[in-house]
């Protein structure tokens, strides 16, 4: 086993202190900024631990989209909401005490567990994964795991994203979002978006394609597409369709539905559910990945648009109602 180098120790200390910053900083706005940095440093440590797929996903999704959502959530915190932000959830003393006891318990067992787990490293599934890799239709083992060996999990996971969008629909007020005038939105930003969005879509396509043989895949590409969508929304909100419209809805379920259809097809031809015969595996995986990328990208854009509702970003720069956080 490789011994840890000073740079490893430094990275771990950095991660821990950033986490402390996120949780401890008195100013929630700064907490969120540190959280984004924390996500990026986490991505660095994924790379260090030979998990570049995760690094991409974390940077794009964990730090990127979720970070932006956090920022928007804070930005929406106006005068009257300050009280709400510090409002206690119903946590009685019993819970807190039991929580503390729990931590003590976990620390005790954790010390035991981590150390003995380290003494007897598990066998893992490295060998079987690589042995059958040539049958999976892709050469990136992580893609093989999530879209072939354990495709059922990923199918349900796409279901989770679909579910979040459904929840947002179910809680949105019925009237359609109104956009007063496009003049409010920054022209610079718009021309920037015009230039950069094609690049982002191109990069998403590349990530999707590359997922078969190197780090990348549907989730990373979807997050990139989501970023492009958010940028479009920022620069020209009127352009964005109402996500509840037919076309948007169709695209939202595309990933989930394509899994269903291919799974049923596989069963009709006498295979197991979600089994890809090895000569068709590449095409099947590419199909569900493309559909999922579209769905993920649109879901993320939709989430952003619904969290941001009413306050469309650059406009607030000039509105004067917002306080500096």
């Amino acid at each position: 086993m490789a011994a840890a180098t000073p740079s490893d120790i430094l990275l771990c200390l950095l991660i821990l202190s950033l986490a402390l910053g996120v949780l401890g900083d008195a100013n929630p706005f700064r907490g969120v900024i540190i959280f984004i940095v924390f996500g990026l440093v986490m991505a660095l440590s994924w790379t260090r631990l030979d998990a570049p797929d995760l690094a991409l996903a974390e940077a794009a999704l964990g730090a990127g989209v979720i970070g932006v959502l956090f920022l928007v959530a804070l930005r929406k915190q106006g005068e009257k909401d300050v009280s709400l932000a510090t409002q206690r959830l119903r946590l009685n003393s019993v819970t807190i005490i039991s929580g503390l006891l729990l931590i003590v318990f976990i620390v005790y067992l954790g010390a035991l567990g981590v150390f003995s787990a380290w003494k007897t490293p598990g066998k893992g599934l490295v060998e079987p994964v690589y042995e059958s890799l040539h049958l999976t239709g892709v050469s990136n083992p992580v893609t093989a795991v999530i879209l072939n060996y354990r495709a059922y999990d990923t199918f349900l996971e796409i279901g989770v994203l679909y579910l979040v969008m459904l929840s947002v629909f179910a809680l949105q007020p019925d009237e359609k979002a109104k956009f007063t005038s496009t003049e409010q939105y920054d022209r610079m930003l718009r021309s920037y978006a015009r230039g950069i969005v094609p690049f982002m879509v191109l990069a998403a396509g590349y990530l999707l394609w590359a997922g078969a043989f190197r780090p990348g895949g549907a989730f990373q590409a979807g997050a990139m597409l989501g970023g492009a969508g958010i940028l479009l929304h920022l620069s020209r909100p009127a352009m964005l369709l109402d996500m509840r419209g037919l076309v948007a809805r169709l695209s939202l379920v595309a990933g989930f539905f394509s899994f269903c259809i291919l799974g049923i097809l596989a069963m009709l031809y006498g295979f197991d559910f979600l089994q890809w015969p090895s000569h068709l595996a590449k095409h099947a995986i590419l199909t569900v990945e493309t559909a999922s990328t579209l769905s993920i990208g649109l879901t993320l854009t939709g989430l952003y648009a619904s969290v941001e509702r009413k306050l469309i970003s650059p406009a607030i720069f000039y509105s004067g109602e917002e306080d500096n956080p």
């Binding site: 599934l125 079987p128 059958s132 060996y149 354990r150 197991d272 559910f273 979600l274």
Partner: peptide, 13 residues
């Protein structure tokens, strides 16, 4: 036991 994706237990679901 119903095998999914054509992969037996430790590898598949």
């Amino acid at each position: 036991n119903i095998v999914l994706s054509g992969w037996e237990a430790p590898l598949g679901i």
